[in-house]
Amino acid sequence: MQYEAPETLAAAVELLAGTSGQARILAGGTDLLVQLHADMTDPDLLVDIKKIQELREITNVDGRFTIGAAITGAELGEHPDVKKIWPGVVEGLELIGSTQVQGRATIGGNLCNASPAADVVPALIAADAIVHVAGPAGRRQIAVEEFAIGPGKTSLAKDEIVVSLSFPPRGERASDAYLRFIPRTEMDIAVVGCGISLERDAHGICTQARVALGAVAARALLVPAAAAAIIGTSLDAAALDNLAAAASTACSPIDDKRGTIEFRTDVAGVLARRVAKIAYDRAG
């Protein structure tokens, strides 16, 4: 195995495009090293992208945040502005693993892992984030909900790299939240995850919302019906019931070692209610 740590995006893309064997991108390594250890992957080339400046930056241009793909959970959590505007995205990333893992695990890595249970992804989908990708043919953008195409599979070509995620500007009365259900209090993979971003008007009526669910299908889902259940309401009991029902209806989970179909379907609704209330309160 060859290890390279290029300092420019162009060099990284060139390395990926130039290899005939299997290449893997190394960011935080919190999944890749586990796979290496378990002999689940045996790449010929490892491209460490952490020395590429653009991937390590957080910028804010007129309220539009761009977060470099190699920003870690710990770094995002320490950024005062992102946390104020996108608390749900930050809590999604910060829920991944331990304090130690937070020091390494990156926002781009969690996305590229394409796990249906990835914690930051429902929050990113709710936030309507855009994935910026670089490849030999230049740059392109992908809506975050289209990025993963199945468990472990992304829409990236072999020689493409995720550069950053960008976020739309926010209104004043807007916020987001993310919750997951796990058996313990930390360290587990989400059994169900839910991210909601919403905006309310001066009267407390929810004017816009995006609801996303994780770990209830082959990839994280955007659930427009769930959003529709709360738009135009002040999150009264009936709206929350409708939200929960829509969230549960959208689920097509599997039975596995982490949870059952029935459990995931039920809890998706429960979490949707809880997350909506948090986001709504934050937005007020």
Binding site: P183, R184, T185, E186, M187, D188, I189, R258
Partner: peptide, 11 residues
Amino acid sequence: FLDYRIPLASD
């Protein structure tokens, strides 16, 4: 230890 879940300090 990811899915064999022994208690954590935070539990």
